[in-house]
Write a protein that binds this DNA or RNA. Structure first.
Length: 345
DNA sequence: GTCGCAATAT
DNA sequence: GATATTGCGA
């Protein structure tokens, strides 16, 4: 897509306003478009560069983004004026690309056209950014970065579609996104991820931007719903207990689509910790399976506050002699925090 | 690649 | 403080 660009040789940076003013004096439409296109390319290149520092330069990102938007809008306007048939094709296809493929349909800023243009450009350059280890870009399904882990992560939320916790997260994300409509899209999650370690807590200036970026940076939290935990415990039982079962085995037994070894591993780690804490009070029980019995609710009879994990997660679907149905319902409500709620008992 | 632990983030 | 994610060595 090489264009013979007048600006390419002696390009002198100027403000967008200046540039637009200069453009407006030109009569040659193709030249206008060419110049606009060139400037946009430069800005997008710039965006690529500052992308690595987006955390430190959130406003810079905003500015460049805005500039690109303005230029693209101008280009679209330019085409519309003199070539209506073209623009009628151009805009719809543009919107298709940016919103449909990105799965960001609901994310529309105050200026839909601008966003679309920007989004499409963002999509372009974001594809060039390599990811170290990214699995969480649920908001941009088409992002190739994501596809590298799509097998295990891309569908990570399918089992949770009906999960209130997940929905809460989604709403939270949506909220954040809508506050800064274009920002989430323009930031390759890979970069976010790699930067997320730098100054994650209470970073500096543009908190909205930063928060929003961070939101998408870190992997979406896996909510261990009671049902999910029930499967987990179930698998543990089959495998001979938490101490002998391995994350991979558990995951395979659980048969939960999108669940990863890491998530199971993490859950198992915590589970073991809790069991360990509880174990001494149950000296009578020696075997692994008996630990699982604990998880089914027997422990709750002891009233031990040390078994939140066991109380909350396993309450549902298992005989839980030690708990009232009310307790179970509480857990249902609190989804992600069922263990904690149990702990609060 | 998998696992377990510890550090870190939310 | 509880829970989930990530890093890292084994």
């Amino acid at each position: 897509m090489e264009l013979s660009l007048d600006l390419s040789l002696g390009f002198v940076p100027k403000t967008v306003s200046e540039f637009l003013g200069e453009i407006s004096r030109s009569r040659d439409r193709s030249e206008k478009l060419s110049m606009l296109d060139d400037f946009v390319k430069r800005l997008e290149e710039e965006m690529r560069k500052i992308d690595a520092f987006k955390r430190e330069l959130p406003l810079c990102v905003l500015l460049v983004n805005d500039a690109i938007t303005r230029l693209k809008k101008e280009a679209a306007r330019c085409m519309e004026i003199e070539d209506r048939p073209v623009i009628e094709e151009f805009i719809p296809s543009s919107s298709k690309t940016s919103s449909g493929e990105n799965g960001q349909l609901s994310i529309m800023g105050r200026d839909g056209c601008e966003k679309k243009n920007w989004m499409s450009s963002a999509q372009l350059w974001s594809t060039e950014t390599k990811s170290r280890n990214e699995h969480d870009d649920w908001s941009v399904p088409e992002n190739p970065i994501q596809s590298q882990n799509q097998k295990s992560r891309g569908e990570a939320f399918i089992p949770f579609k009906g999960n209130s916790c997940f929905q809460k997260e989604l709403m939270k994300e949506d909220k954040e996104v809508s506050q800064v409509p274009s920002l989430c899209l323009m930031t390759p999650p890979s970069e976010l991820h790699s930067n997320s370690k730098l100054g994650s807590k209470g970073s500096n200036a543009s908190s909205l931007l930063t928060q929003s970026l961070q939101q998408t940076a870190r992997k979406q939290r896996r909510c261990w719903s009671p049902e999910l935990h029930r499967r987990f415990v179930d698998a543990l039982q089959q495998l001979g207990g938490a101490q002998v079962a391995t994350p991979k085995q558990i995951r395979e037994l659980m048969q939960v689509e999108g669940l990863t070894n890491d998530e199971v591993k993490s859950h198992l780690q915590k589970y073991r910790l809790h069991v360990r804490r509880v174990a001494p009070t149950n000296g009578l029980w020696t075997g692994q399976d008996q630990c699982e019995e604990i998880s089914k609710g027997k422990l709750s009879e002891s009233g031990s506050p040390q078994s939140p994990l066991l109380l909350g997660g396993s309450a549902k679907g298992f005989s839980c002699s030690g708990r009232s149905s009310t307790d179970a319902e509480e857990d249902e409500k609190s989804d992600c925090h069922s263990w904690r709620d149990g702990h609060k008992l």
